[in-house]
Amino acid sequence: MSIWKYLFNIEERRNWWMRKMPPSPLRDYYEVPFPDKEADWRQVDYLAVDYETTGLDEDKDEILSVGYTTIHGSCMRLGDATHILTRPQGVIPGESAVVHGILDDAASSAEALEDVLPHLLRALAGKAMLAHFATIEYHFLSNACERIYGFPFVGPVVDTLALEVRVYRSQDKSIQQGDLRLANARTRYGLPRYRAHNALIDAIAAGELFLAQVATKMDKKNIMLKDLTVVS
C-alpha cells in the first residue's frame, strides 16, 4: 500500500492543480468535484476501467486499448460501455500481442492516445476510478496525462484486488499464488468465467467483482466510499 501513501488528500490537490493549469481535457476533469469520500457507497458513481498495454512498465510501455463502463451505486450499465483502440508510437511486442490479440495493423488504424484521453477523462469526471490491480491503470493514466498535459492525474480509486486482500486479511487466510487474479477472485463469488481478454470485458469483469464484493460486505455496516478506496 505504500505506493498510495504520498497521494493522500486528493481533493486539495485537485483544487490546486485546477487553479494552476491551462485549459485542457485534464483541467475539465478537475473542474468536477470528486465524489464525497464520506458518501454511502451506493450514492457514488464509478467508472470501471481497464487497459491493454504493451507491458507493465508505465514509463516504457504504451496503452493499446481502453475499455470502461459506468456503475451507478449497485448497478452497472452496459449502455455506457466503451472500448477504444489507441495507436502506440512504438511496435507492439509479440509477447503482449499474444495476450490481448491487438496486432500492429489494427492498432495503426486506431486513434492517438491524445485523442483517446479526453473521452476517458470526461467519463471519469465526478466518478471514482475502479479497476483490478488499479495501480497499473492509475499510473499509466497519470503518466500519459503528465506527458500530454504536463500535469499528473489524481482521483479516488477503488481497487478490487486491494478489496480482495482485505477480505483475506479479515478472515485471517493466507493468500496463495494466483488467488488474487481477477478470474480466480471472480470464481469465489460465483461469477461467470469470461474467455475473451480485452479491455472492456476485463473492465466489466472488475466491475462485477466489485458489485459482488460490496454485496458481501453490505450486511456488516453502512459502507462509505472511503471504506472502499485506496486513494481518496
Binding site: S74, M76, R77, L78, G79, A81, E208, L211, M218
Partner: peptide, 11 residues
C-alpha cells in the same frame, strides 16, 4: 439489446 442491460449482483 445489450445496451439496455444493467448488471447487478444480488446477495
Amino acid at each position: 439489446v445489450l445496451g439496455d442491460i444493467e448488471i447487478r449482483y444480488l446477495r
